[in-house]
Design a protein around this nucleic acid. Structure first.
Lengths: 324, 324
DNA sequence: TTGTATGCGTTATCAT
DNA sequence: ATGATAACGCATACAA
């Protein structure tokens, strides 16, 4: 309840001196510094940070937009962000969107309201032109393989990574390949589907509509995929899967039905998260953690230079295990 | 960049009127309201929330202390919290501690600094007497089976739940039972160990030191546990495991070595999270999500009544599947 | 219904 | 080295 003025009065100094002590400024005599510190302790004082923020004009907090934290991809990414944020003494404020645009706008509005100094999108649902309106409100960073030059962005080249997966499956003798993606309408999924169709055309293979499966995000979705597979008239011999969680669910379910992996059906996924190692899933390693670190550094650069808009792409690599 | 004063000037009204429009107060003529709204739109104005907070004396944000979000237990709990927080139009600010006390103090310091209106501990590492010092700085809620009356708390009765697990294993013919816990020094773990030793004594069975395994939190820890099991001279016939993740890792690893579950070794865990269903793990359901909801409601009650300190315990139940 | 003036708790400027 | 005072942007008691 105590404030800086009260401290000043009791310590027999001015508020300026108290503020100087609080912020470790030079030019405060040891005697007065001592007196101030003593009073602060006595009154159990601590500064009202809202006032500090208002006065300073910034908060040292940045928003992180993500669909859910209840998924290894995003929690890994977040750890990368957090690791870097700590170095810069900056707090992360999370915005769990569940892919709801409304929630993303909430983050952007907090940016406008000076509650946070910037926003990092680990995933985005709002259209680009609406995002653009917030360009001047503070640093914004995108974790996406994007086709724009307004904001800095960090990602892997999704088309290339998807191609790598397809080519590996083909090299292992598969030509009847199905794919499992997240939200089919998302930018990344669109790119992946395009890549898929192109590649299938090259090897001269028609694509069955039911071989493109959406909404594959968590382990339970893998079960759903296998159930669907069992009912297919035209069965693929391999699946290229958007993330390890779904693969894990698929393989577990397949095993239940006595299907051999990769004998009856091969599975290749993305991420190289712990579960893929445990279950010996062949996967394409995505440096998810690093993605986060780089994203945060991009935020810092953008803070220092409001024109900074570099597109950074990180490497990925195939991890051969036992599911293909 | 624009502020309320500028809006007032351009709209030809007082700052008070602008503030009234902003906060939907009555007693503003439609004409002036219109003028203000128009100017706000023109200047692309939005309020500086720090100033609002400073002026109002509160922020509508509460801190959530948790070891990591990269774990189903905590992300589930968090979802329960978030669901409720949304209803009250309150932002959650996460403090990932990694069980570092320092991080928990950070949350408490933000409470003191009026940056957040309260703190919810989903897990706690700092000693109680230090926590107590923050009692008057704002509402604090504990998610723990605690023995205190200063703060409201939400939890299940860990002793009872652990007993239920032990009794079920015993009823299935096991008497050589090992346990896997999280941080052995934590309050919950202590209670569970005590329960374990008591029960083992009742059935007249000595406990081997190596049958109490700590640091079991994630799926990889399950692998470690099984590796250790294989080297034991005195092998248990069953494991009571602190959470489903660890069970999943154990079972996967056991299967690799040709061990039958539950034939060679039975596994019973806690949580009833998705992976336990997928892998048919027998588990004790913890209403993790509800735990979060209740915790948030306790925060609200404590905000309204600074004496409120109810201890709420939620029910748990055994889910019989195929790992015991 | 509207406006003036003051307060919220700090930092920063500018003297001295 | 120190302090008086003006911002920071908003809410609100009070007056009109």
């Amino acid at each position: 309840m105590a404030n800086i003025r009260e401290i000043a009065r009791k310590a027999g100094v001015s508020v300026t001196t108290v503020s100087r002590v609080l912020n470790n400024h030079p030019y405060v005599s040891p005697a007065k510094r001592e007196a101030v510190l003593k009073t602060i302790k006595e009154l159990d004082y601590s500064p009202n940070i809202n006032a500090v923020h208002l006065s300073r004009g910034k908060t040292n907090m940045v928003g992180v937009v993500l669909p859910t934290i209840n998924h290894p991809y995003f929690s890994e990414l977040l750890e990368g962000l957090a690791k870097e944020a700590i170095k810069h003494n900056i707090q992360l404020v999370l915005f769990q969107t569940g892919y709801q645009q409304e929630k993303e706008f909430e983050a952007l509005e907090q940016l406008r309201g000076h509650l946070i100094d910037g926003v990092i999108f680990t995933s985005r649902a709002i259209p680009f032109n609406l995002l653009l309106k917030y360009k001047d409100d503070g640093p914004i960073v995108l974790c996406e393989d994007s086709d724009q030059d307004e904001f800095p962005s960090i990602s892997i080249k999704h088309e290339d990574a998807f191609n790598l997966g397809l080519e590996y499956l083909i090299s292992m003798g598969h030509d009847r390949i199905a794919i499992c993606l997240g939200r089919l309408e998302g930018a990344n999924s669109q790119k992946r589907q395009k890549t898929y169709h192109q590649k299938m055309e090259i090897i001269g293979h028609l694509v069955h509509d039911e071989w493109v499966i959406g909404d594959c995000l968590v382990i339970q979705d893998g079960k759903r995929v296998m159930d669907r597979y069992l009912k297919m008239e035209e069965k693929p011999t391999a699946f290229l899967v958007g993330n390890d969680q779904v693969s894990a669910g698929m393989i577990t379910e397949a095993t239940k039905y006595g299907l051999a992996v990769p004998g009856d059906v091969a599975v290749l996924s993305f991420d190289n998260h712990p579960i893929s190692e445990i279950m010996a899933i062949t996967t394409i390693d995505i440096p998810t953690n690093q993605l986060g670190s780089y994203a945060f550094r991009a935020f810092i650069k953008r803070s220092e230079n409001s024109k900074y808009a570099e597109k950074i792409t990180l490497p990925f690599k195939l991890i051969k295990r036992k599911s293909v």
